[in-house]
Design a protein around this nucleic acid. Structure first.
Lengths: 356, 356
DNA sequence: CTGTTAGCGCTTTCAT
DNA sequence: ATGAAAGCGCTAACAG
């Protein structure tokens, strides 16, 4: 039941050549006569040879450096969970002579991101993983990478007209649609909805938020529902100002019973409403980050839509390693499941991690 | 940034011994003087040595056989997804000289399970994975395994007073609780609920179903809700009889608006109700299996509670491999997230699999 | 073009 | 009790 594994030696014997020659055709690095190659290829196929990638990596003894560029993060937030997944997998790579270097930039400052990209243009590395937060910058950088033949993987979001090795992220449109569906379940006839948004969403990051929002609105249209939906524009920077904006708005619009935010910061809204006269407004948001979980548990937030950031980070790096070290391929687009998280299943969601 | 990896050779040099001696202390197989051992152990700790498990497995060249015992399954059902996860990981094991043999038994026939266990008692193997479906049988078999020092891992459910290496499954009580919570969201005052159950749930399998059911009922009690809950007992074997039982029951109880089943066969109920005068009854059930998904999409079923069977199978085998081949440990209890699946996120749920 | 050789990091005889 | 040596499956440099 076991030792029917075919090795390079078996192939060599059966083809009447040496292991060296077999290796040459396996990695077609030339210098093999046509006859030999054809004979070897035939045997390879016939015996259904599968290389032992571990032995291969061991012998290869080549060093790899994978770069990761993500926004600065604090413990427990979305990016830190992606980073944890990356760090976790990086530990499985060290025995293959592969290491990872992580760069951070300021999520709302394109310049800080450009700086990192510029610095990277002076360095050499074998692969890179990053979220295309600022689309213009990322598009340009992707072009550089393609020109240099450096494989890159997107996480979190995607930009068209580029050629990443792979992509891990959520279908933003569908996640917005799903959020609308969930709100609808308990939406009464005269209930109104508030969408909380930042003043001028930096044009560059608009993509993902925009898609979620349009999925959300389309759900109602397509289902012939037309709840009143308010857009409440806040600064996202000035707490006092925001508190004032929100409270004066809600004072005028007494039918608002649901509030949603399409980034991961619904907890800020929850903090404003908590202990206010509007604490009965039910909130919904994105991402199972610690601060959101707090308000999920005290029922300020009714549900969260989540996307397994740890899994994203872990598998993005795994795909890169498979490509670089093991020469394996992976599916181009990996759409993460859109998870529905409420008070009753959040613990099971956060506590499971067979990988850590 | 890279080649600071410490090898056994480095340790040997620094401790002034040979690689062989270092290896002896690493796997404490004796025959080392106390002085040498202490010196080596000091160096090991000082240099923070991490063995290269891949090189180790390669050199070890030992064969492993892992047994898997699961119920017979058909494509697309719960057990087949567990089996897929197992098969997937087994492919990563072949290069470590480890193979997997899968045995099947009839889920509702304890004798067929006993037969497999008995047969296994005459075979030799290095580890085994199975769901303790029949608790008495499993308990006894676990005792045998413990006595023989063969590591075993439970999937799907757990039995007390045994010593498995690890366990992957859902917190059944909480999943029932969650189901009750979800139904409550849209439960109107005079709505009643039907629990569909098999006549005499085989005493042996009662455990998981029982826990789900009590979680379900407790939710209402603890929240001071007291919807009328009906128990509708069907045979589970005789289609015509069941159809008749259900329809006559529902004819008498016109307030029943929700139906739930605590195993994975809510699709059978959906099939009975579809195109009947009771097609407005909303159903809920467990497990994202193909037939359930069908009724989720046509809205006969409102939601499913799911538990990532592929993940269970995959990681159960991974933990076994880590134990056997790499001598790594794993957490004992791994409670899988309790996923909420509705029409709007089911596709994202089933289509994601970076592992396959 | 091809075979031989040394070696990746580790394990396991086998002498000593 | 310990070191030397061979070998796991594969790669790559080097003769020829």
């Amino acid at each position: 039941m076991a030792n029917n594994r075919i090795t390079i030696k078996d192939i060599a014997q059966k083809a009447g050549v040496s292991k060296g020659t077999v290796d040459r055709v396996l990695h077609n690095r030339g210098e093999v006569s046509k006859e030999s190659r054809e004979r070897i290829e035939a045997v390879l196929k016939e015996m259904n040879y599968e290389p032992n990638v571990y032995a291969s990596a061991l012998a290869n003894n080549k060093e790899f450096l994978v770069i990761v560029v993500i926004p600065e993060c604090v413990k427990g937030d979305y990016w830190s969970k992606i980073e944890n997944g990356i760090i976790k997998f990086s530990q499985e790579m060290i025995h293959f002579n592969a290491s990872v270097r992580i760069f951070h930039f300021d999520q709302i400052d394109p310049d800080s991101c450009r700086k990192v990209f510029d610095e990277l243009k002076t360095e050499t590395f074998d692969g890179i993983i990053f979220p295309p937060v600022f689309s213009n910058l990322s598009h340009e950088f992707a072009g550089y990478l393609t020109a240099r033949n450096i494989p890159y993987i997107y996480i979190d979001s995607y930009i068209e007209d580029t050629n990443p090795l792979s992509y891990f992220g959520m279908d933003s449109y569908k996640s917005g649609w799903l959020a609308a569906r969930l709100i609808t379940i308990s939406l009464k006839k005269d209930h109104e909805i508030a969408i909380f948004r930042y003043s001028e969403p930096e044009e560059e990051v608009i993509n993902q938020i925009y898609k979620r929002c349009s999925g959300f609105r389309h759900f109602f249209e397509k289902n012939n529902l037309s709840p009143v939906i308010h857009d409440i524009i806040i600064t996202g920077r000035d707490e006092n100002a925001d508190r004032e904006i929100i409270s004066s708005y809600l004072k005028k619009e007494r039918n608002i019973r649901y509030g949603i935010m399409f980034n991961s910061r619904i907890h800020t809204i929850a903090a404003y409403l908590e202990n206010s006269e509007f604490s009965n407004i039910r909130l919904a948001g994105f991402d199972v980050i610690d601060s959101n979980v707090h308000y999920l548990k005290n029922e300020m937030v009714g549900f969260l839509i989540a996307q397994r950031p740890f899994t994203q980070g872990y598998f993005a790096l795994k795909v890169m390693a498979d490509h670089l070290i093991f020469r394996k391929t992976a599916p181009l687009r990996n759409l993460i499941p859109i998870d529905i998280i409420i008070k009753e299943n959040v613990d099971s969601y956060t506590s499971f991690n067979p990988l850590e």
